[in-house]
Simulated assay, not measured.
Amino acid sequence: MNSAADHAPAFETAASQWILLVGVGIEIFGVFIIVVGIIWSARYLFGRNAASRYDSYKISIGRSLLLGLEVLVAADIVKTIAIELTFVSLGLLAGLVVVRTFLSWTLTLEIEGRWPWQPDQPESAREGH
């Protein structure tokens, strides 16, 4: 008699599985961004002088990693929504976000020579350091 209540758990399970599948798809896309970025960065290995090649290659790979990490954080958030929210899953998500945020900050420092919260320096000031 209570068919609407019987269908609710099935709908929640199906929705949770779809959300989890979307999260895995976003994760795959994040890895794809990183891999394609590394392959695309190889174009800097040819031509120019050696110092310029290395710096350009390093910066290009760093940007690919930054973008990929941002997408992977989004995937973790989506996947956390799909599972039953507990303190353990929330703590795991928080830990992943902290580690990936730290990686993003250090990559930004490596690429741009400044922390993300510092104002961008003019090109002439960067060349002086």
Rank of each mutant, 00 (worst) to 15 (best):
M1E: 10
N2G: 08
S3D: 15
S3L: 07
D6Y: 06
D6T: 05
H7S: 13
H7M: 14
A8T: 09
P9T: 05
P9L: 07
F11D: 12
F11I: 13
E12W: 07
E12Y: 10
E12T: 05
E12K: 12
T13Y: 05
L20G: 11
L20P: 00
L21M: 13
V22A: 12
V22K: 00
V22G: 00
G25A: 14
E27W: 08
I28Y: 08
F29Q: 04
F29S: 11
G30D: 00
V31Y: 10
V31D: 05
I33F: 06
I34Y: 05
V35K: 07
V36L: 12
V36N: 13
I38D: 01
I38V: 15
W40N: 14
S41V: 02
S41M: 03
R43F: 01
Y44E: 12
L45P: 00
R48Q: 15
N49H: 09
N49S: 11
A50W: 07
R53F: 01
R53Q: 15
Y54I: 12
D55E: 12
D55Q: 15
S56I: 00
Y57D: 00
G62H: 06
R63W: 09
R63M: 11
R63P: 00
S64R: 03
L65A: 05
L67N: 06
L67R: 05
L67I: 12
L69W: 02
L69M: 10
E70L: 13
V71E: 01
V71Q: 01
L72Q: 07
L72R: 03
V73Q: 06
V73A: 09
A74Y: 01
A75M: 02
A75P: 02
A75I: 01
I77R: 00
V78T: 04
V78E: 04
V78Y: 02
K79R: 15
T80N: 15
A82M: 03
A82T: 04
L85S: 10
L85C: 01
T86V: 04
F87Q: 05
S89I: 06
S89R: 04
S89Q: 09
L90N: 06
L90H: 04
G91R: 03
G91Q: 04
L92V: 14
L93A: 03
L93Q: 02
A94E: 02
L96V: 05
V97T: 08
V98S: 09
V99A: 14
V99P: 02
F102L: 15
L103P: 03
S104H: 09
S104I: 10
T106I: 03
T108A: 06
E112W: 12
G113K: 09
R114Y: 11
W115S: 09
W115R: 14
W117K: 09
W117P: 05
Q118T: 13
Q118V: 06
P119I: 06
D120P: 00
P122R: 11
E123A: 15
S124Y: 13
A125R: 06
A125M: 09
R126N: 12
R126V: 14
